[in-house]
Each structure stands twice: as C-alpha cells, then as structure tokens.
Computed example of a mutant assay.
Amino acid sequence: METSWHLGRTLAEANLANFEFTLMAAYAAFERYVTQLTLLIGEPELTFNEVVILHVVRMYGRPKDATTIARLVNRDDLANVQYSLRKLVSVGLVKKTRSGVTAHYETTPAGSEWTERYATLRARLLVDQMSPDELAKETLNEISRRLTRLTILYESSVRTAGILNPHHIFDEETGPDPS
C-alpha cells in the first residue's frame, strides 16, 4: 500500500505515524489534565513540569538527587530540573538536604499534603471513570512495556542521528546514506 502522506508511504509507516499523532494528543491531554488538577488544588501555582517533579520527589518516600529525578522523568535538561526543584523548595513543598556534596530532595509535610490532594482528585476524576479492564495490571503493564520499547527506539534514533553527517545523508543516486 502506498499513500500520499510523507510520513506514511507504506502501511507500516502510516501505522507508526498514526500512533505518533495519538501519542502527541495523549501527551497534550495529560498535560492539560495535570494543569487542571493543579488549579483545582490551588496555591501554589505550579507548572506541569513542576508537578511531575514533585510527584517524583515523593515517589517511594525516599529522598532523591536532581540527577536521579531527571533520569526518572527522562529529562536531559538538568538545569531546568534544578530550577523546578528550587521553585518547589521556595514554595515549601520540597526540602533540600545535603549529603556531602550531593543535594537530596524530599517532600515537606505541605508537599505530602499537596500530592495527597492531587491523588484524591486523580482517583475521583480519572481512576473512578476507568473500567476494571483498563486498570488491569496486565493491560497497563503491556502498554508500559510497549511505550518503554518505543522510548528506547526513539532514544537510539536520537543518538544515531547525532552522528550523521547532514551533508551526506541523502545522495541523489543512492538514497539515504547512514554514514
């Protein structure tokens, strides 16, 4: 099957492109959802990234350093993660402690209360609306496994693209050149 869409020249490419657009739409919807729950909870005003980082800081009830937090959310912009952490500290949701030269972050009682309120809203507005099949461990684990696989493939493609010579990628006669 050939299509006129540049991202879907074959059925496999079209299927991947459709998935990518669905993934972008899901990410945008998730960001709006997190932002709306944040507004319902009230002060302090937090961005999407700050809310995500706050939840990661509280995850498993253990302090984490900025590098670990960045790794857990697959971020390579450590300076921006550190900026978000400074804001969370300044509004009293996270506290910073030092262990030698390394700074660790954990939620304050106010941060734990804030994330509990978020969890309550999440349960009411999302979890309670999902069917048992949608919430089944096997279903969610399979989706997570596939998304993890795609994350690995995208990251590998980024590394490969980073070493390509942009002047030799496309040779008029032979097509794409991987070197």
Rank of each mutant, 00 (worst) to 15 (best):
T148A: 12
N165F: 10
L150N: 09
E134N: 05
A29T: 10
Q82M: 06
A79T: 14
N49G: 06
L54S: 06
L39I: 10
L23C: 00
Q129P: 02
T115V: 09
T47Q: 07
G92F: 13
K137D: 08
T115H: 06
Y60S: 10
N141H: 14
T148H: 10
S99C: 05
Q36F: 10
S99R: 15
L11A: 15
K64L: 10
S112W: 03
A136Q: 09
E50R: 13
G162T: 01
T102F: 02
P166A: 00
Q129S: 09
V101T: 14
R122P: 00
N49Y: 04
V73Y: 12
R122S: 01
A79C: 04
N49T: 05
H168A: 10
K137W: 12
V101G: 13
R58T: 04
G175A: 03
L85N: 00
A12P: 08
N74K: 12
L46W: 00
F21D: 06
T10N: 09
L11W: 13
L16K: 06
Y60G: 05
Y83W: 02
Q82W: 01
G92P: 08
E43W: 02
S4Y: 14
L147D: 08
G111F: 05
V51L: 12
E173P: 03
L88D: 05
P109D: 14
W114T: 01
Q82P: 04
L121H: 13
M130T: 05
P178W: 00
N165E: 10
V158P: 03
F21K: 11
L140V: 15
P166E: 01
E116A: 04
D128E: 15
Y33V: 05
R75G: 13
T115P: 05
R9G: 09
L125M: 04
V52Y: 01
P44R: 03
V52N: 08
P166R: 02
Y60N: 10
K96I: 05
V73N: 05
